[in-house]
Nucleic acid binder design. Structure first.
Lengths: 176, 176
DNA sequence: CTATCAATGATACAGTATATCATCGCACGG
DNA sequence: CCGTGCGATGATATACTGTATCATTGATAG
C-alpha cells in the first residue's frame, strides 16, 4: 500500500489570491491555474502517480510557487525553513525537488541550476524556458511542433529520447 | 593592440592522425575537421575574434579535443596539468573554457556540467546535444530549421535571444 | 504492541564555480 | 636599455551545488 503516513491538513502560510493566467504561442494555448488552484492540480497529479503529498512536500511546492523566478535548491531550503519554523536540510529539499521534477509538477532549469513550478501540471510538454541573463526572470513557451521536431531529429540518429532540455538565454522584454 | 604576448610555437603532446568525419541530418550536412585540422580551424576562428591563442589555451583545446565525451572542468584541469607537467588550477581552466565557449570553439553541455569542442568552429549553429544518461556519450545534431523555429518562438514573446541550450537526455544507440 | 516501511533528519563530503589579489612576461614609449 | 602598462596566468580562499550514508520518526498492518 502506498497510502501510509497521510499528512495532516497542510500548513497554512498564507496565500496569494487565486486567478487565472493566460499564455499563448503560435502552437499552443491554454488556461493556467495559479495559487491554490495550481497547488491542488499539482497535488492531484502527484498523488495520481502514487506519491504522497506530505505536509513538507506541500510546503516545498507552495514556496516554489511563490518565487517569481526559478529558485536554487538552497534558496528553496531557506524559504522552506522559514515557512516551517525550523531548519530543513538541503538534501531533504533536493529529494523532494527530484520527486517533483520526476512527477512533472516542477521543472529544473539546467542552465541556471534552478527550479520552477510546472505551470500546467499533468500536461506533458517540453517547455522552452526563456531565461534573462540580466534579471534572471524566466518565462516559458510551449511549442509542440518544435518539441516534436527535436525529438524526431534525435530519434532518427538512433537515440532514445527521454527528457528534453530546451532553454534560451538572452534578455527579457524588460531588460532588452 | 591585442597582439601582445604572442606564444611560442605550441607544445607538442602528440596527436591522433587527422581524418575527415562526416555528419548528416535532415536539415544540415557538412564535413568536419578533426585532429590538427580542427585545432587549426579553432585557432583561426579564435584569433580572428581578437583573442590570443596562447600555449596554455592551445593545450586546453588539445586536451578537450581528445576526450571522447564532454569533460568536466576538473577532468580537463587534471589532463592539462598532466600535459604541461605542472599543476594548473581550476580557475585558470574555467577562464579559458569560458573564452572558448564565448568564441564558439567549444560548447558547454548544461545538463551535465561539461565541456566539448565545437566540431565545426566558425559555423554558428545551435547544436542539439544528445546525452546518454547511461554512458555519458554525447553526440550532436544540427538542424537549422529547428534552431530557427525555436529562436522565432522566443523572439515573438519579446525576448531577445542570445544563446540556445538544446539538449536531449536519453539513451544512445549502444545503451538503448 | 511491534515490526515494517516511507519520509525525513543529521552529517559529511564530493563536485562545480567564482572572487580576489599576486605575479609574470611581452610590447611599447622613452 | 629600462620602466610602465596590460593581458594572461597563478595562488588561495570560499561560495555554491549536489549526493551518500546512516539515524530517527511516525503511521500502519497484522
Amino acid at each position: 500500500m502506498v497510502t501510509r503516513q497521510v499528512p495532516d491538513p497542510r500548513v497554512a502560510i498564507g496565500r496569494k489570491s487565486d486567478h487565472i493566467a493566460r499564455v499563448s504561442t503560435a502552437a499552443h494555448q491554454h488556461r493556467l491555474p495559479a495559487g491554490d488552484a495550481l497547488a491542488t492540480a499539482a497535488q492531484s497529479v502527484f498523488e495520481r502517480a502514487g506519491d504522497q503529498w506530505t505536509n513538507l512536500r506541500a510546503t516545498v511546492f507552495d514556496v516554489l510557487m511563490r518565487f517569481d523566478r526559478p529558485a536554487s535548491a538552497y534558496e528553496i531550503t531557506e524559504a522552506v525553513s522559514q515557512a516551517v519554523g525550523r531548519r530543513v536540510t538541503a538534501n531533504t529539499v533536493y529529494r523532494i525537488l527530484d520527486l517533483f521534477v520526476g512527477g512533472n509538477i516542477a521543472a529544473r532549469v539546467e542552465s541556471s541550476n534552478a527550479y520552477i513550478v510546472n505551470a500546467h501540471p499533468g500536461c506533458r510538454h517540453d517547455c522552452i524556458f526563456l531565461v534573462c541573463d540580466r534579471c534572471g526572470n524566466t518565462s516559458h513557451v510551449d511549442d509542440d511542433r518544435i518539441a516534436t521536431d527535436i525529438r524526431a531529429a534525435a530519434d532518427k540518429t538512433g537515440f532514445k529520447t527521454l527528457r528534453a532540455v530546451l532553454e534560451m538565454r538572452g534578455l527579457c522584454g524588460e531588460c532588452a
